[in-house]
Design a protein around this nucleic acid. Structure first.
Lengths: 354, 354
DNA sequence: TGGGAACATGGTAGCGATACCAAAACGAGG
DNA sequence: CCTCGTTTTGGTATCGCTACCATGTTCCCA
């Protein structure tokens, strides 16, 4: 009367389970579980042993089983409107990567910025069992959406909001410092007649960038008043702003647009008027979006580590959700990551200084 | 000695399970499972009853439990190189959406096109428990990668390969027909001196597009020989090709670039030479990538429903994996989706015809 | 030094679904 | 009428993991 041979249900090679790790490490599955989930009440020695075993065996927990057992619907939402567009790609890569790392599912939801649409989107998210949401720009600026999500008791991480909202976690770059740095770069090149195109007034990042620009100008002193136009982060609005900036003599020798799309528009308009970039006009942008490297001349701009930011946002969400279940709160509410000034060909010394 | 009250593990409201449905319909859970999964061997009467119960109770199967029980390690991989870049964004959205719909996890993996890199990427995928892979361009063209994946017994869906590879499933548009249509559009506008910029010679889509162009020219007849330059799908290569095309009189009145990035380069070069688009030179592209709408004038191009294609790819993968387990094969190996010609401002009647 | 807290670990019982097998119901052919 | 094959249904054993509780340990303080 022998027990039937353990028949693995599918012919496939079974993957390594928590039991394998436990056996290998000489502890119980429970202990392994605790180590893997960062639980407390595990001695350092045991933790080391188990982690070693995990690495040795290449163990990765089975998501399905984990979700089933813990009944945590650990799904994270990503609510996107239409961010600067090329943004989304990198953002998704970063977010998905982090999600995979943590073994949580990422649920995408598109959402217009009207109250009705956001209500609907949030409802869909809730129905999908989502417990936390990443909010890329420009959605992260909408107090309505944040309130809606809060009402559904979701954790929220806003990404790249210029100023961190009080009611959500946030990961961003220092827009102020970055814009200041870029402006200083232009000034160092010898430009004096500057033009600036503001971003969408609804987004706090716009204001931060503007403040950064103004601060640099102020610090430098002895400059003619810069000329400023309002933009809305779209190519079209950049074109309009550029037309105004380039309609009045004396022309600026450098224009700082609050994002790359608008900067590209400035370049297009400059070309149309027979101005040569960068010699007749320096143009710089912000974001280092795809378009920046794909136009000629390449756009000098500020690089945001978008994928990294998205990843960190998911990290924060997971930490908050998991931490929140057990007592361990202590979540950092706001994380700032480093930006980088990318110099390409669109900015050079002004002719007058050459 | 009463049994302790059934304590639902989390305070959350439990959702309706297969048991609830079974009880409600007066059958066993097994039967419900069979009905829900479209199994055979269920009488019509029972099926009706169960479906009614399902609808009545608003039952939706728990994905985690299902995955666990059926031991389908249902993770799908998405192996990406650097596709035309803005491609990725939409692609990811479509793929993720489908993945969520099917309750499978999507694992991203980046991969250069060298044999060593692809080997490493495939190994990581296998380690991650991936059983099927979506291959967006340009990776889908690499026989090396496909072989590597095949060796790991993965299901593969190539997306947007010009010609479907024999060794993988495939979803794409009809590049030939699309290019032909675009060319016919230019001819109908009255253009006669045409220029064409080929795509990367490694990609079968390039050849299909070229063939479509040539076919339309041939069909029209009575045209001066079109001028053709080799490109590589990059902005830079487009710039080089444009320079050559615009260096020799008589200039073409219309240039068809095999993708948008190259078309954008043509426009940049045209502007540099003081040619006005579209009046002096019509420019059209292919892909409808983000750049197409974000340059001025907007680019007339061929729209590919990228998100849809990515979604269908995941659908096919899931079907193949699930179908493969039970006997039901009958997988369609190649699916073709509709493209669309998007007219913007970059193409108009030639001056000579005005 | 005993009692109680905090720490460390293991055992057991499911989570909700499906795979697999057994059993019942049914019809057809000998 | 009985046997055999097919259709229809139900029972049982997991799937891999974690919640919950029980059992030790350790160590601090009254």
């Amino acid at each position: 009367m022998n027990k039937p041979v353990r028949k693995s249900r599918s012919g496939a090679r079974r993957s390594v389970t928590i039991k394998d790790v436990a056996r290998y490490a000489g502890v119980s599955p429970m202990t392994v579980s605790r180590v893997v989930n960062g639980g407390q009440y595990v001695s350092d020695a045991t933790r080391q042993t188990v982690m070693q075993a995990v690495r040795q065996l290449g163990y990765s927990p089975n998501l399905a089983a984990r979700n089933l057992a813990s009944a945590r619907g650990e799904r994270m939402g990503l609510l996107y409107g239409n961010p600067s567009a090329s943004y989304l790609s990198e953002f998704l890569v970063g977010a998905l990567d982090a999600a995979t790392r943590h073994g949580v599912q990422l649920v995408l939801e598109k959402c217009e910025m009207t109250p009705a649409a956001s209500r609907r989107a949030v409802r869909r998210l809730v129905a999908g069992g989502v417990v936390g949401v990443v909010l890329p720009p420009p959605l992260c600026e909408s107090a309505v959406i944040r309130a809606e999500l809060q009402a559904a008791r979701m954790r929220i991480v806003a990404v790249a909001a210029g100023r961190p909202p009080a009611d959500a976690m946030c990961v961003s770059i220092d827009d102020f410092a970055a814009a200041r740095e870029m402006t200083q770069y232009l000034l160092a090149l010898g430009h004096t007649r500057l033009g600036f195109i503001k971003g969408h007034p609804n987004q706090t990042a716009s204001e931060e960038r503007w403040r950064g620009f103004a601060a640099a100008v102020e610090e430098h002193g002895q400059l003619p008043e810069p000329r400023v136009e309002q933009g809305f982060f779209t190519f079209r609005s950049g074109l309009d702003a550029a037309r105004k900036l380039l309609a009045v003599e004396p022309l600026p020798t450098a224009i700082f647009a609050s994002n790359d799309d608008m900067a590209a528009a400035v370049m297009a308009e400059a070309h149309r008027r027979g101005l040569e970039v960068p010699n007749d006009l320096a143009v710089v942008g912000f974001d280092d979006s795809l378009i920046a490297a794909n136009i000629w001349p390449g756009l000098t701009t500020i690089h945001q580590p978008i994928a990294q930011m998205a990843g960190e946002a998911v990290d924060m969400l997971v930490a908050a959700v998991r931490g929140g279940r057990r007592g361990a709160a202590a979540e950092p509410v706001h994380r700032q990551v480093a930006h980088e000034l990318i110099t390409r060909e669109s900015a050079a010394r002004p002719r007058s200084a050459a």
